[in-house]
């Protein structure tokens, strides 16, 4: 690994000042499970790593039924999944976060890092998208919130500007009669990157029809993909296999998969159909329970 400098500021202000000073050559370091591998491979370059794990706000998890869930960008996957409120209210998020790497990776990797890394296959991103999550970015002069669905712009690229830092993720409170789920397909049982993944969120009306729905995909487009039209097609429908199949077909149309070492385009498109149906099924079962 090429030499770089290291700083571990204890405040957001200090961290942002460092990022502003170094510009794009400064990289925030959260779990490091992707960043260190990229640096070691020479796929990425850095003059300074800003370790953000010593900033209290970045490692905090808070939940209340009104404002929902807020967790810092440096909260590890394990800590998030162990949190009782997260487990109770956001099983669709837990689905996605608990499968990022194995036990050791879970203790280091962060959802914030997963999002900033912006790989098309990032598992947590479709889960956050369907839950309507927002990302809080703080720079030297301002703070802004960006819907997660708009966060990634290309493989490895996000809306984050040099000098800005991802501080926290905010997930709305769980809506009544709603449910979410995330599923991915990998060749092994664990320790793999998604060949394809699908997140689904459903809300039922009092009459049992679908009042609202969101579907997002991983690993089948240059970025995690929010398929608004697939969710829209479900509104007003009953949560049946036929309705799910129709939504899945729309998602298959919308995806833009490629063939690479992890899977073929035709396999990925096929899997989108399977996974969207399954995720919708799981999400609707969660509404019932």
């Amino acid at each position: 690994m090429k030499p770089f400098a290291y700083q571990a500021p204890v405040s957001i202000e200090a961290a942002v000042a460092l990022l502003a000073e170094y510009g794009p050559r400064a990289r925030p370091l959260a779990g490091g499970t992707d960043l260190l591998v990229q640096l070691r491979r020479g796929a990425s370059d850095a003059a300074l790593l800003v370790d953000v794990k010593r900033i209290p706000d970045l490692t905090r998890i808070t939940f209340d039924p009104v404002s929902g869930l807020t967790f810092g960008a440096a909260v590890s996957c394990a800590e998030l999944c162990e949190h009782p409120d997260v487990r109770a209210h956001y099983p669709g998020l837990v689905d996605a976060v608990r499968i990022i790497g194995g036990a050791a990776i879970q203790n280091r990797a962060t959802v914030g890092g997963n999002l900033c890394n912006a790989t098309p296959s990032g598992d947590s991103i479709p889960a956050l998208i369907v839950l309507g999550a927002e990302a809080q970015l703080t720079g030297a002069d301002s703070t802004r919130c960006v819907p997660v669905r708009d966060f990634c712009t290309a493989p490895g690229k996000t809306v984050r500007q040099p000098g800005e830092m991802l501080v926290a993720l905010r997930v709305p409170p769980p809506a009544a009669r709603s449910g979410a789920a995330y599923l991915r397909f990998i060749p092994r049982a664990e320790m793999d990157i998604a060949v394809a993944g699908a997140g689904a969120w459903l809300q039922l009306a009092a009459d049992g029809t679908i009042a609202d729905a969101r579907i997002a995909l991983s690993a089948v487009a240059p970025t995690p993909l929010f398929v608004a039209e697939a969710g829209a097609a479900l509104i007003g429908q009953r949560p049946t296999e036929d309705a799910f199949a129709a939504a899945a077909a729309i998602a298959q149309e919308a995806c833009r998969p490629i063939t690479d070492v992890r899977g073929t385009a035709e396999q990925r498109r096929h899997l989108v159909g399977v996974l969207v149906k399954r995720a919708l099924r799981m999400a609707s079962e969660r509404v019932a329970s």
């Binding site: 499970t33 591998v37 203790n107």
Partner: peptide, 29 residues
């Protein structure tokens, strides 16, 4: 493997399992 995929470098950091190849030594201050 030096990239977190084999687990041969597993250690406990504050009681939690981590891959020591994916932890910078300066981080354990």
């Amino acid at each position: 493997c030096n990239d977190g995929n084999c687990g041969a470098c597993s250690v406990l950091l504050d009681g939690r399992l981590v891959n020591s190849c994916l932890v910078l030594a300066v981080e354990i201050e």
